[in-house]
Design a protein around this nucleic acid. Structure first.
Length: 573
RNA sequence: GCGGAUGUAGUGAAGGGGUUAUCACCUGAGGUUUCCAACCUCAUGUCACGGGUUCAAAUCCCGUCGUCCGCACCA
């Protein structure tokens, strides 16, 4: 009964719906593809996973959290490259209606079809008699731009500003680089994280939670000085074996520790290796099966427009290997792009020299009394051009080019030569960034997939969700052995006490036989069950049952909150 | 987006131009039980949405939306 993976996937999906973990959104209005709700169980599960992620990175000590708007002005996304990159052109076949990326159709006929205008694409398609890949016809509609971003406007009346729902959270961290730099007292390296919604208007969302139109992202931007040798301590993982799948151009899949992969240059940058290792730690800590994690390097052709090296953490589950985390070395791409788009010069960091550099310069300085009357309204432009002059003229008079392209003749009495000595203590540079970007929904899906365990109990199917206690949405279920007498009263009491404790959630269940209630709790992954029986009324003790093996021990109900807060210890059982 | 399949309680299914729309599990109440989906009685709840054909539509037709599979797409 458990052999068919498709059937298992259907049972799991049904259970998630039935128990209020993951549900289709807006269902009474017909539903919308690619949008999901987290229900009463799923909502808290998602929050816990999110918090676990934030805490995991905060623990590193040099990473802070920020939060940015989801509505993003167009200019930001033009600078970042998303408007260009997400604006692929599509060609539609008139015969069969098939739709293809125009640049893919003309691959081989142009060295870089990505940059072509729609007219050129159409021209190239017809000149080379490109046939439809589906029906073989040669009858194309004009290439149309297709933008995967949700567009909107800022401002309600006419005019306003074009904007998009952010396709990633990363831009927020780049926008706030100056504030982050100040926060960290002008010292690299440091990082910033942000979790929140991202939006992509996918053509065809499929595979449940794998491809969504609105999804939970968690991104980290770690800013480093490219000239400082990064040193990371990989000793924690010396005996860990990670699965690596390098770009086929560079090598075969292999197993080794992340430290080795870094020293052997399989991972090109040690900071990328470091974040891969820390990502692995995170995934395992929230309940992903380590045997089902692999790191796959992007091939040159699929590398995102910003990345210079990129590894995906892929997780294996019911849909095969799925990319759940992308760890990219983005170089200085983003900061440079925003700098050149805005002219803002605060996106740089200061690198002091070991020794101050003494620079001797000879400059020509305009004599105001001569330049002014000679050039009148051009005088200030002449002075600027003189200051920028690097090579001293060999003779006078000489021709000087102004910033606006005009040329003027400079006589020797207009200027004087000055020797300037300055001391430079350092330089401004664009930091590089390593970006681990997590798809929370995809990870959450795989946590559920890996935790969902089907077995048999007394000839009947029995399912347990073996969620890690660190993210289980309900910590403990409170069960009066019978819902009468003072048993129910005592159980309610304990339930309220646990719920009012920070970071603990309990669930009161009083209906049905005790076995049925254990089963209900097991199905949604409650790690602990507390049962109140007649002995409890006499001496205040209760039994606590461990989900994964059904083992029970008796403890004092007064100790319950403390025991659950620190997690019941192994020697208790 | 194209092609195919499909949509009936919370879940899984049966049925089908005129029925009080059926069954199991689940859920709730009462009884029984006194620690791992027991049992008895009762109860709640369903034909995706919109339009058409018809005296009559959950059933036939069309459209929309959703789901699944294949193709295409997928920072």
């Amino acid at each position: 009964m458990m052999s068919d993976p498709q059937a298992r996937l259907e049972r799991l999906t049904s259970m998630l719906r039935r128990r209020g973990v993951i549900l289709p959104a807006f269902e009474i209005h017909g539903g919308v593809a690619g949008l999901f709700d987290f229900g009463p169980i799923g909502g808290r599960l998602r929050r816990r996973l999110n918090n676990a992620w934030l805490e995991h990175w905060a623990a590193q000590g040099d990473i802070v959290e920020i939060d940015s708007p989801t509505i993003t002005p167009e200019s930001v996304l033009i600078a970042s490259g998303h408007v260009g990159e997400f604006n692929d052109h599509m060609s539609e076949c008139n015969a069969c209606g098939g739709v293809f990326r125009s640049d893919h159709l003309v691959e081989g006929f142009h060295s870089n079809p990505d940059v072509l205008a729609p007219k050129d694409l159409d021209q190239l398609i017809s000149n080379n008699n490109v046939n439809c890949l589906t029906c073989g016809a040669m009858d194309w509609k004009d290439a149309q731009p297709m933008n995967l971003m949700f567009s909107t406007r800022i401002g309600t009346m006419k005019g306003g500003r074009t904007a998009y729902m952010r396709p990633e959270t990363a831009q927020g961290m780049f926008m706030q680089f100056p504030a982050l730099y100040r926060h960290f007292r002008n010292r690299l390296p440091f990082g910033a994280v942000q979790t929140g919604k991202g939006y992509r208007n996918e053509i065809s969302p499929r595979q449940g939670m794998i491809r969504l139109r609105e999804f939970n992202m968690a991104e980290l931007e770690y800013f480093i000085d490219p000239e400082v040798e990064s040193s990371h301590d990989f000793s924690k993982w010396v005996s860990s074996r990670f699965n690596f799948v390098p770009d086929p151009e560079f090598g075969e899949p292999l197993e080794m520790s992340p430290g080795e992969a870094s020293t052997q240059n399989i991972i090109r940058h040690p900071t990328v290796a470091w974040f891969m290792a820390r990502t692995w730690d995170f995934l395992v800590s929230v309940g992903i099966d380590p045997a089902k994690i692999r790191f796959r390097q992007h091939e040159g052709t699929e590398m995102a427009h910003y990345a210079s090296d990129c590894w995906d953490a892929e997780i294996h589950g019911s849909y095969g290997w799925i990319e759940c985390v992308g760890i990219a070395h983005r170089g200085c791409y983003d900061l440079a792009a925003h700098e050149s788009a805005t002219g803002d010069n605060n996106l740089r960091a200061w690198r002091p020299y070991d020794e101050p550099k003494i620079v001797d310069k000879t400059v020509l300085s305009g004599k105001g009394a001569v330049i002014g009357p000679s050039f009148r309204d051009q005088a200030s432009a002449v002075n600027e051009a003189l200051e920028l002059l690097i090579d001293m003229p060999s003779k006078f008079p000489f021709e000087l080019s102004l910033g606006n392209g005009d040329k003027v003749t400079i006589e020797s009495e207009m200027v004087e030569e000055k020797r300037i000595q300055s001391t430079e203590h350092g330089e401004w540079f664009l930091p590089h960034v390593v970006e681990p970007a997590f798809g929370i929904d995809r990870i959450l899906w795989h946590i559920l997939d890996h935790a969902y365990l089907e077995s048999e109990k007394g000839g009947e199917a029995y399912t347990v969700l073996r969620l890690s206690p660190s993210i289980a949405p309900i910590d403990v279920v409170i069960l009066p052995l019978m819902e009468k007498d003072e048993l129910a009263e005592m159980a309610h009491d304990i339930h309220r006490r646990i719920c009012s404790t920070k970071n603990l959630a309990s669930y009161y269940d009083g209906s049905g036989s005790i076995g049925r209630r254990y089963a209900r709790a097991d199905e949604v992954g409650v790690p602990w069950a507390v049962t109140i029986d007649h002995e409890s009324l006499q001496n205040g003790s209760v039994t606590i049952r461990r989900r994964d093996d059904g083992k029970q021990v008796r403890i004092q109900s007064d100790d319950l909150v403390d025991t659950l807060t620190i997690g019941p210890s192994a020697n208790l059982f």
